[in-house]
């Protein structure tokens, strides 16, 4: 269900923790699975749970508690915009509105061509770089003014 490379990455996560504490690796393992498959289906969660050797419902709890796990299909690029207060004071809502207008979608929606999903995020711990946006959960973009957004969207193929 996952590539050898992903499984090797999960093994590296497992190696960080005591042998009788494999459960600790579930967050990393779900992240690795999601990175490969873009989002977590129930089947994928069950597979990862069995690989880490925990009950599937325990993995499901984790996958639904932490909000960077996606359990519904997302576009090729998931753009998460922080609108929390520090970002909002520096134009976080402007960024979000610009993206909505430019992509023609609202928060939680995906463009018809499946390329972009727009999400509202909570504080990313980078308020000094406000407004900030995450691409596919892992790549932080700073100072996302409309110009910077235009440039970034052009880069994302």
């Amino acid at each position: 269900m996952l590539s050898q490379e992903s499984l090797a990455q999960i093994d590296r996560e497992l190696a960080k923790y005591p042998a009788d504490q494999r459960r600790s690796a579930i967050m990393g393992a779900l992240r690795i699975a999601q990175t490969e498959k873009r989002y977590l289906t129930n089947e994928l969660i069950e597979f990862v749970a069995s690989y880490v050797r925990i009950p599937p419902v325990a993995a499901y709890e984790v996958a639904t508690f932490y909000n960077m796990y996606d359990r519904k299909p997302v576009g090729k690029y998931k753009l998460t915009v922080c609108t929390n207060l520090p970002c909002a004071l520096s134009g976080g809502y402007t960024t979000a509105d610009y993206l909505k207008q430019k992509l023609g979608i609202g928060f939680g929606e995906t463009t018809a061509d499946g390329k972009f999903t727009l999400a509202e995020g909570e504080c990313m711990g980078a308020c000094g770089y406000a407004p900030v946006m995450l691409v596919n959960n892992h790549s932080m973009c700073n100072h996302m003014t409309p110009d910077a957004i235009d440039k970034k969207l052009a880069e994302l193929e």
Binding site: P55, V57, Y60
Partner: peptide
């Protein structure tokens, strides 16, 4: 002995 129920979401 086996977690069959969980509390999902938050």
């Amino acid at each position: 002995g086996y977690q069959e129920l969980g509390m999902a979401n938050r």
